[in-house]
Design a protein around this nucleic acid. Sequence first.
DNA 1: AGGGATTGATCAAGCGTTTTAGCAAAATAG
DNA 2: CTATTTTGCTAAAACGCTTGATCAATCCCT
Lengths: 359, 359
Amino acid sequence: MISQENSSGTPSDAPAAVKQTQRHQPVTLRQVAEAAGVSTATVSLVVNKKKAARISDETRKRVRDAIQDLGYRPNAMAQTLVSGSSRFIGLVADAIATTPFAGQIIHGAQDEAWKHGYALLIANTEGNRELETDAIAMMLEYKVRGILYSTWFHRATDIPASLRESDFVLVNCFSAEPGTRAVVPDEIQGGRSATEVLLKHGHRRIAFINATIPAPAKDGRLQGYKEALEAEGIPFDAGLVLEAYPDQEGGYGATEELLKRDVTAVYCYNDRMAMGLYDGLREQGLSIPDDIAVVGFDNQEVIAAHLRPPLSTVSLPHYELGAAGVRMLLGLDEAQDSGPAKIHCPTVERNSVRALAPA
Amino acid sequence: MISQENSSGTPSDAPAAVKQTQRHQPVTLRQVAEAAGVSTATVSLVVNKKKAARISDETRKRVRDAIQDLGYRPNAMAQTLVSGSSRFIGLVADAIATTPFAGQIIHGAQDEAWKHGYALLIANTEGNRELETDAIAMMLEYKVRGILYSTWFHRATDIPASLRESDFVLVNCFSAEPGTRAVVPDEIQGGRSATEVLLKHGHRRIAFINATIPAPAKDGRLQGYKEALEAEGIPFDAGLVLEAYPDQEGGYGATEELLKRDVTAVYCYNDRMAMGLYDGLREQGLSIPDDIAVVGFDNQEVIAAHLRPPLSTVSLPHYELGAAGVRMLLGLDEAQDSGPAKIHCPTVERNSVRALAPA
DNA sequence: AGGGATTGATCAAGCGTTTTAGCAAAATAG
DNA sequence: CTATTTTGCTAAAACGCTTGATCAATCCCT
């Protein structure tokens, strides 16, 4: 019977219900204006804290109270529409899920974008060209300020046609086309740093297990290795450069060849190879770093930090790539004319390298 | 002299130049309308392929040509404004960079969102409460359809106040508060599956190295272990459950205790512990899977797939969590009343388990 | 007291769309 | 040949906000 009462009468308790579930139909400027007894212009002025505007303190307060009461949130779409320029930056990535790396790029881009009042619109293409086109179209329709086009590993790329309809910066990839803005890791410096870690500890005969597959990283890291040796006056010995597929298997498989070289240290193309090499070396009863010192490349945390012993390596600066990409897009960092901007790869020293006992 | 000609006369080649760098000041509906000699209404109608609208084929073509010529892209902001509902879904994550997991959630969410015509607006908070509030505010201002609030490891969370201003779904976390929509991994089933892998291969004395730190995973994975044993009629032996910090060190450190238990198989709380255990076992001269079978949990690719031997494990379904979150948000999957939706954790068999030789 | 400054707030146009109602011309029916 | 329907298209309002122009009231000088 009591319920009967409810189902009949006037919706007297509706207001309360509305307050609880105010969810849909968001509060607008106009409603705030009405509640405060002022014009929408006035509300807009106090919302945006325009210093120039002359609004009495009393009115300001009234408006702010109304905003508070109603739980007003500006409609960013409307703002964007009138202001003409959106606060979006697009990020298209080819492999968000497949690697931990993309996450770092996103993170860096997002932090930096945020810092300048931009929100990140991301799209994952997993290498699918059609998806990519759609993603870019979507971003263009949202009138993004610009697009970051990123790849999960450092490589050359061609530029999708629609990308040109917007400002864009290539992140972790580059194009032969002149005038293209891009930011990539400094592989050469990275290779140099990796080698230097070993040199610094007195090693002279240092092997380099390079990748078999062609890539900017392959050339750059080798180049850096050569430069570091040269700087120390050590002649480059092509016999100390091996090649293997850049994964655990490859590293493991290279063990045998490596041991023929009679070196005291080895620099691996990446951490995964180093991980495989650890296994190979251990099988041979060799200890790291006592019998042989190892450095990797990439600083793939889950691996490098947790191998036994933890692996000294050189970090691929994905976070920085994302951030620098945004800065370049916004014109805060100047793009150098001489190709892509190169981001420093920092050394991360752990325990896989020890000073060579004097012979 | 020839250049003189250029710098004086009419800007006869301006159109070409404009065509090249049409970039800024995007083309609007009105411009297309003018070019095609029709009203904006007409253009809108053909852009949106309204079947009901009566537009002659000839006019349609004229409009489409104009669109092509000018490179028109609709302004999504304007569309959103008038349609009232945006095509955004927000995703706030507490650790995009720190783990590979968040990337998978993003990927799943993004795929599913896309499928339904939504774009993903993401924000990374790295656990910073203030950032989080800002991020949610931003999303609310963009009038997102709803927000996915995700954590990188499965845990209880409290619900930020502003989150309630929108539809939301908790992803990989949950709240005690009744009526909250959430999706989490099915830890119990996962624990059961992990144990079953071992049972299936004939193992009866199976140790479980659990985590020391409290978490839904800790309880759930243990519970699953018990259930699986029980289903096989094997009495639960508390003595076979060890505890260690859930990382490599922990797994390594647990080796000694484990070996006292005289088991033929061990189920580790996660892959990182398994990785440490591999080292410990190897040091003892024990071989996996011949002397002892190992399964992990999480399926952290970089580790599990590349250990020697590759680790059998149970996958944490992050991609699915993201996708299911979106579906629940959009009301495509029903939220069950009985707490969070539980997502299946699939078994991933590799080579760390082998049939037990008959005693 | 009259003129100019200053203060506090409003008006109204406009941002790029969508969409309903309506209008003129053409086609069809009677 | 008129009345009705159909066809093809447009006018205009609306979405929520910003902002330069404007206006009324108050203040300060001389």
